[in-house]
Amino acid sequence: MTDLRDLYQEVLLDHSKRPRNFGVLDDADHTAVGHNPLCGDKVVIYLRMEGDRIAEIRFQGQGCAVSQASASMMTESVKGKTRAEAEALFERFHELLTGKEPDAAEAPELGKLTIFAGVRKYPVRVKCATLAWHTLRAALEQKTETVSTE
């Protein structure tokens, strides 16, 4: 049970049940779709950029708690950030999940996102947690093909 709570922390469950920034962004100028067909997780990211800065971000999606909470928390983390800042955050987030960087959990810029350290023990679920981030990257790069982390 302790292990389970590492993965399904209250914050994560809260975000999966009440996702923030959920819905279509009507004046979006960047969008991208992420889909993991094997498990069915789906995320659509909508961005409105102001220059180099993410002025507004929303998402829609369906799937497991990890994928949806990750998308929700990501929108909160990257709103107002520049492309480079968002990209750097993704790098740290990825290190946190894959455990390549043992200190990643300490990284102050990750903030609440450190709760995803629990995913490290569940390698098959890493793809759930990173789908939204890969989709964000695709949106920033204005890629049209659907993103997958499977």
Binding site: M1, D3, L4, Y8, G63, C64, V66, R125, C128
Partner: peptide, 11 residues
């Protein structure tokens, strides 16, 4: 989601 069920049951 069924995948969350699967993970918890596996534990």
């Amino acid at each position: 989601h069924p995948h969350d069920i699967g993970t918890i049951l596996d534990q």
